[in-house]
């Protein structure tokens, strides 16, 4: 079974984002970029499936600027077999990414597509669900456990009140939550090996997908400043604050 993994290049999770003064977006020039953390978990899961013999090949796909190839290369260093880069200069919205991935998944004959549950830049949480819809496949979102046996997959999902387990017909789309696994660090020999692994480039036109954004971003602003916390000296002061300031008693 071929496993397809989608990855996104985003501003590193540890970088504090700054909003541009003109309201056009957040500052991305000279900012450290990295693979979206949820995508890393998806790559790790795919590599583990390959190691367990469940997956025959793992293919990493990314739509984004030229530099997205570095992100694909990171996934290859973690153990994925080959990459596909779909060049795109501007932002590509979830629906467009889902359409691109559908065509790639069909072309490659993938039996499972793994994605992060959401990207930490636009926080959309849509692509996996949309891809499953377009392919007409089952979906297991926010997965904390995946067990594949033949024609079905058992996915444990992290939901608001706890955990839910669903039985999915294969092929399926699974999106990863934080608890699914702990992604490995790429070893130096594997980083060297990854340099020789192939990355194909396919354009959106070749895949027959229009990636023009549908949503018009009118403005990006700083959120209102949150009042900081305060230390209290004693219980009496706490009670006073709870009563008169927070109004919770």
């Amino acid at each position: 079974m071929k496993v397809l993994v989608a990855v996104k290049r985003v501003i590193d999770a540890n970088v504090k984002v700054r909003v541009r003064q003109d309201g056009s977006g957040v500052e991305t020039a000279n900012v450290k970029m990295a693979m979206n953390p949820f995508c890393e978990i998806a790559v790790e899961e795919a590599v583990r499936l390959k190691e367990a013999g469940t997956a025959s090949e793992t293919i990493v796909v990314s739509a984004g600027p030229q530099a997205a190839q570095e992100t694909i290369r990171t996934a290859l260093a973690m153990g994925a077999d080959r990459g596909i880069h779909i060049p795109a200069d501007g932002p590509v919205e979830p629906l467009a990414v889902a359409k691109l991935l559908r065509t790639v998944a069909e072309k490659e004959g993938a039996g499972l597509v793994l994605l992060g549950k959401q990207a930490i830049d636009d926080d959309c949480n849509q692509t996996g669900q949309m891809l499953a819809a377009l392919l007409g496949w089952s979906q297991g979102t926010f997965a904390s456990k995946i067990e594949i046996s033949g024609e079905s997959a058992r996915v444990t999902r992290e939901i608001d009140g706890g955990l839910e387990t669903v039985e999915l017909k294969m092929p399926c789309v699974v999106t990863t939550d934080l608890r699914l696994n702990e992604p490995r660090y790429a070893s130096l020999p594997n980083i060297m090996k990854a340099k020789k692994k192939p990355i194909d480039t396919i354009t959106a036109e070749e895949l027959g997908v229009d990636v023009t954004p549908r949503l018009e971003v009118l403005n990006v602003a700083e959120p209102p400043v949150r009042g900081g916390g305060a230390k209290v000296e004693n219980a009496a002061e706490l009670v006073d604050k709870l009563k008169n300031q927070a109004g919770v008693i």
Binding site: I11, V17, V26, I120, D123, V217, L218, V220, A221, P223
Partner: peptide
């Protein structure tokens, strides 16, 4: 967006 560090209209 960005976990609430920016608000997009």
């Amino acid at each position: 967006i960005y976990a609430g560090n920016a608000l997009a209209t």
